[in-house]
Design a binder for these strands. Structure first.
Lengths: 109, 109
DNA sequence: TTATTATATTGCAATATTACGATTAATAAT
DNA sequence: ATTATTAATCGTAATATTGCAATATAATAA
């Protein structure tokens, strides 16, 4: 059906999956890495940096914004994007909690 | 087109995205959480635990196996699944590196 | 051999995603 | 006012994903 059955999962599971899903595209990873690297706002040059068409980048930015991974501020004709630091902290905690669940390595296989 | 342009991204970006993509479904998160929780193999009861049809679970398990997040060992008529500890360590490092890229919080927006 | 049990594969319908050309909206420059 | 410039939105084609029924496969049990 192409539609995920979110009802049968916990909030946390749906949340984790949603965040991971947004990170599940190299263009969005590249955008985030660029924002981290320059450590400030980016106004406009993302299309050149990434190498996809402008509407495509705009779409990816929208998805990142929807989950509050980034923020956008209008600055004249252009828009400045940067990491949403507060939310990013929470996301990092959420993902780290999952990643470090323990791994007692009591492997039986 | 529905097809990702991986050629224009770095190996690391594609790698990160691939892993995140697999984590981007609540059923697969739930499977991993269950494997972590019981901290050993699971033989068979995943279908009941998760609550999706058997072919659907089998498909999700396949995707997790393809990226070496889990291992499967045949045990008589059933198959036992567990976290692939070695690979999991690498994945954790890869994701942690990305998540903790710095966040100097020199927010300009 | 013939069930039985457990998992994988196939095929398919419904929906989602990716990418981009064309267009639009909003401001800036002339 | 007219003309850039910048980014969002719309529309659409190609492809991917999700979920399951039906079926296949593989190993053991009767």
């Amino acid at each position: 059906m192409g539609v995920t059955k979110s009802e049968i999962f916990t909030q946390e599971q749906n949340n984790l999956a949603k965040i991971a899903k947004v990170l599940g595209h190299p263009a969005r990873i590249a955008i985030l890495q660029h924002l981290f690297k320059i450590n400030s706002c980016v106004c406009g040059d993302l299309v050149e940096v990434i190498g996809l068409a402008q509407p495509t980048i705009s779409q990816h930015l929208k998805e990142l914004k929807n989950l509050n991974l980034i923020k956008g501020n209008i600055e004249g004709t252009s828009v400045c994007y940067c990491i949403d630091q507060e939310n990013w902290k929470e996301i990092r905690i959420l993902l780290n909690n999952f990643l470090n669940f323990n791994s007692n390595s009591s492997n039986c296989c």
